[in-house]
Design a protein around this nucleic acid. Structure first.
Length: 108
RNA sequence: AGAGACGGUUGUACGGCUGCGGGAAUUAUUAUUCACGAGGAAAGUCCGAGCUUCACAGUAGCAGGGUGCCGGUUAACGGCCGGUGAAGGUGACUUCAAGGAAAGUGCAACAGAAAACUACCGCAACGAAAGUUGUAAGGAUGAAAAGGCGAGGUAAGAGCUCACCGUUCCCAUGGUAACACGGGAAGCAGUGUAAACCCCACCCGAAGCAAGAUAGGAUAUAUAGUAAGAGGCUACGGCGCUAUAUAUCGAUUUAUUCGCUCGAGCCUAUCGGUAACGGUAGGCCUAGAUAGAUAGCCGUAUUAAAUGACAGAACUCGGCUUACAGACCGUCUCGCUCC
RNA sequence: GGAAAAGUACCCAAGAGGCUCAAGGGGCUCCCCUGCUAAGGGAGUAGUACGUUAAUCACGUAGCGCGGGUUCGAAUCCCGCCUUUUCCG
């Protein structure tokens, strides 16, 4: 099943109506929906194309590890990374786990 | 050992577990297995092409744009290779939009008498003087002032005359040519700017894969119009075209599919060529995503170190330009010390 | 992905080869007016950096996004980069 959030309308809805959870490295936005879907939003401020790709890979890998073997509540989620000088996998993974729990998106 | 010039290569490799992208096979709708999966710049979008659409992509001219020493190379180019000339460097070598200023027009601030067929001061002759005539040595201004320098000559001077240098033209030789070298002639009709307009030679239809397949369209009938209409414009050729109404088939949105990867392709050997490049033979198939696939953890090896140096394909090629930690290789230059 | 446009003081900006050249507004500073403020009126700041000076004035050099080139001379012409903005289904 495809868990990627794709449409511009969905992104707009999350940005305008979504609840927010903050952490050191990223911000999480979410609204209720039929399924679980997530997307990532980046701008040119984060760096050139290779850096933006790397951030997306790190977040995707983090989300895969976090949601593995767990039941999910139905939300549309958008992750907004903050502009940092360096991005480490461990910090991002911890923050993904923290924000997902705080937003009540994953069940233990 | 030092300083430097030029050219080239590389941009960690292999393995395990958990995962991603499209593909193939086997299953038979859910899995398994297999091999493959970013770059030298993928970048900037600065040139040149393929491909697609625009009504035909025809001819001539105008407008607009580009290129500009010579020869070669190529599908093509403003690229590349080789040569010539000029400038810079002790040198290896580097840089150069490098045609035309007696086809015409414009511009040259300030200063200076004058910025193009000049004459302020000056010099000389004549004259009582005012001034007239001759002149362009010297002064002064400027980025630039009418070949330079020396001698002769003269009232004073001046290519006025001569030698040398420079310039232009002609001839001979060498070279495919740019040009070089040698000889001769011309007293030198004249500054700079063409990345000012322009002239000359050559080249160019436009838009772009968000193109497009695809569509306010097609077909039929009727009526009307017109020798008109449609590339940036004009003319010619060629083409029946336009408007309205009715009918039928369709379409406008969104999503999907195709375009989408075998190509002026890559590698190796060899032959021709100074080289760019071309020929021949053999081998190879090597990303095709669309919120956009390469990540995480760990081990081994090489190493001075390896944790991204610069950096991510989006239709595809040929170049140019720009970014780039470090490592390695080759050819050559300079002066110094020692043997 | 593709196609265009623009960069000049703190802000908005004119200038399109040469002269007092980096016009002119707004802002800012000071003064007048007022019990105080706003508005209004007047004057100015100097423009940014560096150097000369004890300091001011004054002068010189650089400077129109950055780096080269053409020219006697470049904000202006040409080339290459950088940044910002806009458009295209």
């Amino acid at each position: 099943m495809d868990i990627r959030l794709k449409k511009q309308k969905d992104f707009d809805a999350v940005f305008s109506k979504g609840k927010r959870v903050y952490s050191k490295t990223l911000t999480l936005l979410y609204i209720p929906n039929n399924n679980f879907k997530f997307g990532i939003s980046l701008s040119k401020k984060h760096g050139k194309a290779n850096i933006r790709n790397r951030i997306k890979r790190l977040i995707r890998a983090s989300v895969r590890e976090v949601i593995k073997g767990k039941t999910l509540n139905n939300y549309n989620v958008v992750i907004l990374p903050k502009v940092l000088e360096e991005y480490s996998f461990i910090d991002i993974k911890n923050d993904v786990l923290y924000t997902f729990k705080k937003g009540n998106i994953v069940n233990d």
